[in-house]
Design a protein around this nucleic acid. Structure first.
Length: 485
RNA sequence: GGCGACGUGGCCAAGUGGUAAGGCAGGGGCCUGCAAAGCCCUUAUUCGCGGGUUCGAAUCCCGCCGUCGCCUCCA
């Protein structure tokens, strides 16, 4: 079975094909770096990360580009986001950009998202953006008025093909006052004249100004991926206007189809409503990571399909936490079991059919438009089988355990990024000390000194170390967070 | 007003024509020195509502209702 994906452009699930055999060129809209990233970003970029990981897992060579928006875009109030950040922190705009770009990358690293191959910055591509705007004017797709340049939407008949909007149906000015400079309300800015107080400004043929929001993606995607590439990803709320405008500019510029496949992730709400500063319900990734391990945030995101909207709530994430523990429990138990020596008379078990079934069903799920929730359900079934196997005594042979370990590493680890980054099987001082305490406790248990053994267990629990007694010995795991909070 | 997404058990959620996966929470049992974890059993005659097509519909069609997002610089 081969991969099918839902393409927003045609609103259908279709077989995935690449322009160049074995190679995928993929672009995802990155963040505007003027504040810490929030869990809405986590939802989008974990979704895209799993798409990237799965494409690579199937053997495709993926070139992944994600931009950083670090030129000033405007808030509803007409205020520059980055200038606002700079004033808030009484610092230089580019310092704000650096600070939050690093914060964003730290968050993405913490969430186990694979770094893009190229992260171009808009401010570093102003000459290319000016050149693109000049070309659009030459082509008759844009016009200059009072130091600003606008794209003439009427010059691009396919405008609206991604979002399904028709120009004459747009209700203008619902959110922002229509600029008086524009010929038509639906025209959008390619270049904006900088007001005197505007700090982020560049020289251009039209005077001092700054690039429009959409042109950076057009320029940077085509620079690093070519005028026609395979996948463009982003958030559903960016379909219109951002992605629609990208298509108009890019295709007017090159005459070629921009991206073949448009993949959009559903948006995230907090307790049923959109996050916003005014509602004060914004949850940063940093704060979420105080409450939950990164893998739990991933588990939460992946527990619904990437195109579906999700609602962030304590209850939902706690449920994901419990589910994640159930999913990864046997993976850790297998690793710990492999540390002990195999019993000489261990009967060889044939677990290969369960392994094959899991791999086949997992792949089928992911091939169906990256259906991670269904893929995770396959892993739950697998976990049940592995738990049954591990409860037998003596423990299964090394070969069987190693092949199970491989399944977890490939599917839960490589593809979904759900395996804990800190393994309890690492040889380090802390783990060694825990194992010494476990040995002391077991000695007490053998002498039926349960007061001592329970005391050791309880005290370790207060340090976040949970002991579990099984037929093949005692295993332990860490549980530093409290999901019931 | 327009465009789009969504509406499945107490909660989350998969399922696009063949008779409702999975997880969380709850109940019962087994296992355990006691726990924890795990295992077994159990919880939707029903998929927002009303029509229609069909031998057969959560899935297709029509009409409503509701939630959310977007409507020109929010991921």
């Amino acid at each position: 079975m081969s991969l099918t994906v839902y393409n927003t452009l045609i609103r259908k699930k279709v077989p995935f094909t690449t322009i160049e055999s074995g190679r995928v060129r993929m672009y995802v809209c990155g963040p505007t770096v003027y504040d810490h990233a929030h869990i809405g970003h986590a939802k989008l970029y974990v979704s895209m990360d799993v798409i990237l990981r799965y494409l690579r897992y199937t053997g495709l060579d993926v070139l992944y580009v994600q931009n950083i928006t670090d030129v000033g875009h405007l808030l509803d109030s007409g205020e520059d986001r980055i200038m606002k950040g700079a004033r808030r922190e009484q610092t230089d705009p580019m310092q704000v950009v650096e600070r939050y770009m690093r914060s964003y990358m730290d968050d993405m690293d913490a969430l186990q998202n694979i770094r893009p191959d190229i992260m171009p910055r808009a401010a570093g591509h102003v000459p290319e953006q000016i050149a693109a705007v000049e070309q659009l004017i030459k082509n008759g797709n844009a016009y200059e008025i009072n130091g600003s340049v606008y794209f003439d939407v009427s010059s691009f008949p396919e405008y609206g093909k991604l979002s399904g909007r028709k120009i004459d149906e747009l209700q203008e000015g619902t959110r922002l006052d229509v600029s008086t400079d524009k010929r038509r309300p639906e025209d959008f800015a390619l270049w904006k004249r900088a007001d005197p107080e505007h700090i982020m400004r560049w020289s251009s043929p039209w005077g001092e100004g700054f690039p429009g929001w959409h042109i950076e993606c057009t320029v940077m995607a085509s620079k690093y991926l070519g005028a026609n590439f395979d996948i463009h990803g982003g958030g559903l709320e960016n379909v219109f206007p951002h992605n629609e405008c990208e298509i108009a500019q890019s295709e007017a510029l090159s005459g070629k189809t921009f991206a073949n496949f448009w993949l959009h992730a559903g948006s995230l709400t907090v307790s049923g409503v959109k996050m916003s500063k005014s509602l004060d319900n914004s949850v940063t990734i940093q704060n979420a990571l105080i409450d939950y391990p990164a893998e739990v945030i991933r588990m939460f995101v992946l527990s619904s399909h990437y195109r579906s909207p999700i609602d962030y709530s304590k209850e939902a994430v706690n449920a994901a936490y419990r589910g994640w523990q159930r999913l990864t429990g046997p993976a850790l138990a297998v690793q710990q079991a492999l540390l002990s020596t195999q019993d000489s008379n261990t009967p060889k078990v044939d677990f290969s059919s369960a392994i094959k079934l899991t791999r086949d069903e997992f792949t089928a799920a992911m091939n169906d438009d990256f259906n991670a929730p269904k893929a995770i359900a396959c892993l739950f079934d697998f976990a049940k089988n592995v738990n049954g196997l591990l409860s037998e005594y003596p423990r299964p042979d090394d070969t069987t355990l190693q092949s199970i370990d491989k399944v977890y590493n490939d599917l839960a680890g490589t593809v979904l990024g759900l395996l804990p980054s800190n393994s309890t099987t690492y040889v380090n001082h802390e783990n060694k000390l825990i194992e010494i305490l476990v040995e002391l406790r077991n000695a007490a248990r053998q002498q039926k000194d349960f007061a001592t053994s329970d005391s050791i267990r309880d005290k370790l629990a207060t340090a976040g170390v949970i002991l579990e007694d099984g037929l093949s010995g005692t295993t332990w795991k860490t549980d530093l967070s409290n999901p019931s909070d």
